[in-house]
């Protein structure tokens, strides 16, 4: 049954999708032109690489959020989850002590396992507890945040072994053929995400679940499994983001990942995914994350915005970017 229904839907949407899918890219180009006009230093390779590199955490997390939101869910706990995962990963590294690849691999494994488990917990409570995801993840957001504060005793969790720190550092600061590793990481995550969302039956189930849960249920979509899996995917994405985050400053503090959940959700929405579910756009999400970071960068590089007004101008630019997008696909 899905075989006969879904292909026609996808085809009907094809033309609309092209315009809608393009609009975040148009907003991106407009922003880049604006940035270049404001400060010539903006277009230097080092500045642009800096900006895209540091958008990597939000981009990777937002790819996971695309799945959750496309299926009609929401995850507010990602920022706290990232902080907790980073904290536990560093504690694992410290407990091993020796500076070799084995230690690093163990730390990474711990990070991914923990974040996947956190995602699983979110998913199970949402599905089996039948509670609104907003409430569930608001609760786990508090839980994860307190746990990291407790682990750090309010202070900072830092990689103690300096050799280990140096060994791990290239994962954020290194580059392959001139492309920084975090950019490669988020391109890889986005590619795999796009593949799963657009080319697998699971991906179609996610979108079907988000557009109409009842119809999806009657069509035989395994609702509970699909929904739980979206939260696990979100968790794994948080874990991958942490793998790239930890080598940057080598520490986790109680303020790590603060408000990342809002940035991830904003990136998803700028990218064209519907907040009410039913539409998911992985590449748009990635562009959304880059746009967010670019706006912040342009603010610092500009000379005419007072530091007191940065927040206001940033907010205005995001709203204008969305309006531009809207008018683009209305006037098609």
């Amino acid at each position: 049954m899905t075989e006969t229904v879904l292909p026609t839907r996808a085809e009907k949407r094809k033309f609309k999708m092209d315009m809608r899918a393009l609009s975040p890219f148009i907003a991106l180009i407009v922003l880049i032109i604006a940035g270049a006009l404001i400060n010539p230093d903006f277009l230097t390779a080092s500045n642009l690489l800096n900006v895209v590199t540091r958008s990597a955490f939000i981009a990777i997390i937002a790819v996971g959020a695309t799945f959750v939101i496309a299926s009609g869910g929401l995850d507010l706990s990602v920022g706290s989850m990232a902080a907790l995962t980073a904290g536990v990963m560093i504690l694992t590294l410290n407990s091993q002590g020796s500076a070799d690849m084995g230690t690093l691999a163990l730390g990474m494994l711990a990070a991914i396992a923990l974040s996947a488990a956190c995602g699983l917990a979110n998913g199970l409570i949402v599905t089996f507890g039948r509670i609104e995801p907003f409430i569930v993840t608001l609760g786990t957001m508090g839980i994860f945040r307190s746990l990291v504060i407790w682990l750090a005793a309010g202070g900072t969790i830092t990689i103690r072994n300096l050799e280990l720190r140096e060994l791990y550092r290239p994962v954020y600061f290194g580059s392959v053929f001139g492309i920084p590793v975090p950019i490669i990481a988020f391109l890889a995550v986005a590619s795999i995400g796009a593949l799963i969302l657009y080319r697998t039956s699971f991906g179609r189930h996610v979108v079907a679940l988000g557009s109409n849960e009842d119809v999806a249920r009657y069509s035989g979509v395994p609702i509970w499994r699909v929904r739980t899996l979206t939260y696990i995917i979100q968790g794994i994405c948080v874990g991958i983001a942490v793998l790239v985050y930890v080598p940057r400053l080598g520490s986790a503090t109680p303020t790590t990942g603060l408000l990342w959940e809002l940035q991830a959700i904003t990136a998803v929405v700028i990218g064209g995914t519907a907040l009410k579910g039913g539409i998911g756009r992985v590449w748009g999400t990635v562009v959304g994350a880059v746009i967010l970071e670019l706006v912040a960068n342009i603010m610092v590089l500009s000379n005419f915005v007072s530091e007191f007004l940065v927040g206001a101008v940033q907010g205005a630019i995001i709203i204008i970017a969305m309006l531009v997008q809207r008018s683009v696909h209305r006037g098609r």
Binding site: F42, N47, N50, L249, T256, A296, V300
Partner: peptide, 14 residues
Amino acid sequence: RDDAFKVMQDFLSK
């Protein structure tokens, strides 16, 4: 710490 890293990167470009 993270915000300071970003702002400093931008200061260094500027």
